[in-house]
Design a protein around this nucleic acid. Sequence first.
DNA 1: TCTATAAAACCGACCAGACGGTTTGTAAAG
DNA 2: CTTTACAAACCGTCTGGTCGGTTTTATAGA
Lengths: 215, 215
Amino acid sequence: MDNATRSERSRNAALEAAIAIIARDGPGRLTLDAIARESGLSKGGVMHQFRTKEAVLKALLERQMAHFEEFSTRTMAKVSASSASPNLATQLATIREAATSPNSAALALVAAMVENPRLMALPREREMKRMAAIRAEAADPDLAMLRWAGAMGLLLSSLFGMSPLSNDEHQRLFARLLDDAQWSGLEQPATRTIKPAAKSSTPSTAKAATSGKRA
Amino acid sequence: MDNATRSERSRNAALEAAIAIIARDGPGRLTLDAIARESGLSKGGVMHQFRTKEAVLKALLERQMAHFEEFSTRTMAKVSASSASPNLATQLATIREAATSPNSAALALVAAMVENPRLMALPREREMKRMAAIRAEAADPDLAMLRWAGAMGLLLSSLFGMSPLSNDEHQRLFARLLDDAQWSGLEQPATRTIKPAAKSSTPSTAKAATSGKRA
DNA sequence: TCTATAAAACCGACCAGACGGTTTGTAAAG
DNA sequence: CTTTACAAACCGTCTGGTCGGTTTTATAGA
C-alpha cells in the first residue's frame, strides 16, 4: 500500500476512534491509550501520526469544521436564490445538521474545551465572520441573531444532555426557526411596529403529544 | 468552633475552590489534589467531607441549582403580577443571571458532564418541569420554547467561549427576549395568522423532515 | 467543675493504576 | 540502503482513593 494512503488511513482511524470514544464514554475518557485501543493501532502508531494529544484534538476540530464548512457551502448554494437571508438560512440549517448528526460532531468542541480552552479560538473566529454576514443581510439584525441563538440553544442544550425537549419538538422548533415567513411579522430595524394581532380566545394549547425524552 | 459549622466551613471552602479552579484552569484541571491545594485543606480533609470526587461534583451541582432556584423564586414573586407569562419571564431572567454571574455557575455543569454525564439527569428533570409550566401558560408554546432556546443559546455559547457577540449585544438581545411586547406580533397557537408584512419576497422553504436522528 | 473517653474533623504519607509521552526495535515502502 | 509507518516496552508524573495517626469537639460521670 502506498505510504501516503497508509498514513491517511491511520490518521482517519484514530480520529474516528476519538469521536466514538467521546460519544460513548464522554470527553473525560478520551485518552491516547483509549484511542489506540479503539482504533486497533498501537499507541506508538497513534503518536507517530499525532505528536501530542493536543494535535489530535486540533485535527479533530479541523475535521469537523471542514465537514460543516462543506455542508454549509452546499446549503448556501441551494438557498441563495430562494431566501432573502441566505446566510442566516444556511447557518440555521447547519446548526440543525450538527444537532441531528449521529456522529455527534460538536462533541469534539467539548473535548477540545476541556483539554485546552484556547483551541476554541478557531471556531469562534469563523463564527464571527458568519455572524457578520448574517447581520449585514438582515432587515432586523438583532432578530436574526436571536434566531441564531435559538438554534444554538437547541443544539447545545441537547448536546449537554439537558434538553427538556422531545425529538419531535426539536424538529418542529428548528423548522419554525428556519421559516422566514414566521418572523417577518416583527421585524423592527429600530422602531416599534407591533401588530395587535389576534389574541385568539382559547388556543388549543397545542397537542402536547410529547412524551419523548432526550433529544 | 462548633463541629457542624466546622464541617460546613470546610465543605464550603472545598466547593468554592472547585469553582475557582474550573473557572481559571478549565474543567479538565479539576482534581482532588487541586481542590485541597486551593482550599487550604489537606487532601484527607477534603476526602473526609466528600467520599469521592463524584460527590464533590454532585454537591457543586446541587449548590448551584439551589442558588438559581432561589433567584428564580425571588424573580417569580416580582413578575408574577406584571407579566402574562411569569414562568417564561422568570426563566429568561434566570438564564440571563447565569450568563452574567461572575462565578460562572454553569461551569459546574460542564465539569459534571465531563466527569459523569449522568449527573446531568438532575438539572434536566428540573428543567423539564419548568418547561412544562412555560408551555402551559403560553399562548404560543412553541414560540415560548424558542425564546427559552434563544436565551440558552446566548448563555451556553458564551460559556463555551465561542460566542461571537459583544457584551452590549448580549445584554440587548436578552432584553429583547424578555420583552413580551416584541413577540406578541407573531403568536400562532396552531393556525397560521400571518400578516403579509413588509418583506418576505419569497415564501419560506421550510422543507423540514430531514434524515435526523437523536442529537 | 474537672476529667476520662468517645467521636468527629483533619492531616499527610502512601498506593495502584492511568496518564501523556519517549525510546528502541522492525518491517514495509521508496 | 534510507526513510517512513508502525509496534511494544518503558518512564516519570499525576490521579482518585486509602490509612494510620493527631488534634479538636462532644458527652458523661464524679
